[in-house]
């Protein structure tokens, strides 16, 4: 007997299936990531009114048979809708956040913190453009919620506090930080400015809404490279949205 469920969710992606169906992946507040089939979803204005678009905030009602891999989507309603069209760049960054959330969550494994993070990030993005500090904060928080957060306060080797006045070392193979004494001379470790590490530490703790305004100034590119390396160790496949972001930034 299939069990009926209902949860707040963000639509991560969808694809057409046959003439009128859609296969949709959601990140739900209560059940983690779920993928389901919406029968007649392309035509049904009553059961799925504009609610199966990527990045939409919805409440999804679905049934799940124990042995089935796909949930059966009963209906889905929009929880909020913006009348302001998203500009291309914000859409691309929204897709980036969504793609990351999809890769760092597992089907049917509750991830409420990640859901709240994505939900909040998409709302911030609706109000203002994505800044470098906002993106880095999102990446760091996501890594932490997914269980891949590197300690930014202590050396993983000796356990001593990382001194804010000294250079520390980042292990490119492990995405961990070491103090100057432990990291120096290690081929797989690159030196990191102490200011950058302090900045990342601050961003990871700060509420996402406040991160938008944080200036990264001279460490902007280095911060992006660092979090990019941390993420790449855990990505299952390359992020497609980066290609679009690249094209949009080049065309400006």
């Amino acid at each position: 007997m299939p069990t009926s469920h209902s949860s707040e969710a963000v639509v991560l992606r969808w694809r057409s299936y046959g003439e009128s169906d859609k296969i949709v992946t959601f990140l739900t507040r209560d059940f983690g990531k779920i993928t389901g089939i919406g029968k007649g979803a392309k035509n049904s204005r009553r059961r799925f009114p504009n609610s199966l678009e990527s990045m939409a905030r919805v409440r999804v009602h679905f049934r799940q048979k124990a042995e089935a891999s796909l949930a059966f989507l009963e209906s889905c309603e929009l929880l909020s809708a913006s009348t302001t069209p998203m500009d291309p760049e914000r859409l691309a960054y929204g897709a980036y956040l969504t793609e990351l959330a999809e890769q760092f969550t597992v089907e049917w494994s509750p991830a409420e913190e990640t859901f709240s993070l994505l939900d909040e990030a998409l709302q911030v993005l609706e109000r203002s453009p994505a800044t470098a500090s906002f993106l880095r904060a999102y990446e760091l928080k996501l890594l932490q919620y997914a269980g891949f957060g590197s300690p930014l306060e202590r050396c993983v080797q000796c356990g001593n506090d990382l001194n804010e006045n000294e250079i520390c070392y980042f292990g490119t193979m492990t995405a961990t930080f070491q103090c100057q004494q432990c990291g120096v001379g290690n081929d797989t470790h690159t030196p990191i400015a102490a200011t950058l590490l302090a900045m990342l530490r601050g961003l990871r703790l700060m509420p996402l809404t406040q991160c938008q305004e944080q200036p990264l100034t001279n460490v902007r590119d280095e911060a992006a490279r660092l979090t990019g390396q941390m993420l790449s160790l855990h990505l299952i496949r390359p992020l497609r949205s980066l290609r679009t972001i690249d094209q949009l930034t080049r065309s400006q």
Partner: peptide, 12 residues
Amino acid sequence: TLSPLDGIGPDD
């Protein structure tokens, strides 16, 4: 259309 989730940008 522009479709970042599919990696489609203006050049495409």
